[in-house]
Amino acid sequence: MTHLTLYTTLGCHLCERLEALLDVLHGGEYRLHKVEISEDEALMQRYGVRIPVLVDETGEELDLGFEPQRLASWLAARGRLDEAAWRRLQAGEGDPGNGGYDTAKTPARSGGRRYLG
């Protein structure tokens, strides 16, 4: 299982878009830990204009992960991209971040569950 951290804040529509894309494009199970940056001045300084920022288990950060190509490349570099889902998204079968992804066409994932923290 992959452990990811998302630096976010309440009402961040780009963060919601990243989460929707992550749910579709991540191959396998993952746990997403959300960190609210507005409650910490240091986090506000570091991430305030960069959110959403997705961080992997090694501390590697992804800015602008709400852009499908950037997220797909980042996941692929970690061996965690669901290639079939990426091909469907590229073929124009909807964009989950814009509410257009047809989940009825999405096959069940290996293990069948997504974990949110």
Rank of each mutant, 00 (worst) to 15 (best):
M1N: 03
M1C: 04
T2R: 12
T2S: 15
T5Q: 08
L6R: 06
Y7M: 08
Y7Q: 02
L10I: 10
G11R: 10
A20T: 03
L22W: 02
D23V: 04
D23C: 06
H26Q: 13
H26D: 06
G28I: 05
E29M: 04
E29V: 05
E29P: 07
Y30M: 01
Y30I: 02
L32K: 00
L32D: 00
K34G: 04
D40N: 15
E41F: 08
M44T: 07
Q45T: 12
R50G: 07
L54E: 10
D56L: 07
D56A: 05
E60I: 05
E61L: 08
E61F: 09
L62W: 03
D63C: 12
D63W: 04
G65T: 11
Q69C: 05
R70H: 10
L71T: 04
S73G: 12
W74R: 08
W74V: 13
W74L: 12
A76E: 15
R78V: 08
R78H: 11
R78S: 08
G79E: 08
L81N: 01
W86M: 03
W86P: 02
R88K: 03
L89C: 06
Q90A: 10
Q90G: 05
E93P: 01
E93D: 11
D95H: 00
D95N: 00
D95V: 00
P96W: 07
G97P: 05
N98G: 12
Y101M: 01
D102T: 01
A104M: 13
A104G: 11
T106C: 03
G111P: 09
G112Y: 10
G112Q: 15
R114F: 11
Y115T: 14
